[in-house]
């Protein structure tokens, strides 16, 4: 434990990074985003304002694919507030493929009438400011948002986040019985959002809508905290 603390102090912290970015960034929205800071590393998660974030994209690669919709729902360990959340459909720089339409149920016309990401970035950033982001599967929202900000503002947007999928993997994939299970040929359980939720008795939602998924992620995180951690868990144990 003590070693771990020293290690973390040795490397630059998220708080340092945010402070430096607040100084360095030229874009006012980014400046404000960074200036809002990050929660204290050793502070209890129960005190931290959170925001569940979900993007729908045309693919998995931020260099090639684009964001189609953004949903976010503010919450904390006590209560989730869907009505205070936001949802945007955005127009990607390249036209939508048929496959992604089928998957997202967002139609051409919806996208055609939507604003480009550049028009809403400031709003998104101000919703995220001062809140710790929670996502399910870390490799979408952060890289896609960073790529979008870089493309439109020429600066980086990086932030700590909590990945409910990674948390789920901690006990579903890396539990003590992992080796034995593999020997016995037991399939590892799915850690996809819907399957993970099922393990906590959470209801089924008709998914693939960014805001529903954000709400679902917030619920999952509350459930994970209730079952495996507690409100006093330090933030640094959870974020990545």
């Amino acid at each position: 434990m003590i070693l771990g603390k020293h290690q973390r102090q040795a490397s630059p912290s998220w708080a340092d990074y945010f402070a430096r970015q607040a100084e360095a960034c030229k874009t006012p929205a980014l400046k404000r985003f960074y200036a809002a800071g990050v929660p204290a590393e050793e502070g209890p998660i129960g005190d931290v304002p959170l925001v569940a974030l979900d993007f729908e994209t045309t693919g998995m690669d931020p260099r090639e694919h684009a964001i189609v919709s953004i949903g976010l729902v503010p919450f904390d360990l006590r209560v989730i507030r869907p009505s205070a959340g936001r949802y945007w459909v955005v127009k990607p720089p390249r036209p939508l493929t048929e496959e992604s339409i089928a998957f997202h149920r967002i139609t051409h016309s919806e996208v055609e009438q939507a604003p480009p990401i550049a028009a809403i970035l400031d709003e998104v950033l101000s919703e995220l400011a001062g809140r710790l982001v929670v996502v399910h599967y870390r490799n979408i929202e952060r890289p896609f948002l960073d790529a979008a900000v870089m493309a439109n503002r020429g600066e980086h947007c990086l932030f700590p986040l909590i990945d409910t999928m990674a948390l789920e993997a901690r006990w579903e994939r890396h539990g003590r019985l992992r080796g034995i299970k593999r020997l016995l040929g037991i399939q590892p359980s799915s850690i996809r959002l819907a399957d993970s939720r099922g393990r906590y008795g959470l209801p089924h939602y008709s998914s693939h809508h960014a805001k529903v998924d954000a709400m679902a992620t917030a619920e999952l995180f509350q459930a994970q905290m209730a079952r495996h951690f507690g409100p006093s868990t330090p933030v640094s144990d959870l974020w990545i």
Binding site: F75, R78, I80, R81, P82, Y200, E219, Q222, A223, A226
Partner: peptide, 13 residues
């Protein structure tokens, strides 16, 4: 529906 807030409690809470 528009005013609902959500909270999760594990068994025993």
């Amino acid at each position: 529906a528009g005013a609902v807030e959500i909270a999760y409690s594990k068994a025993g809470t």
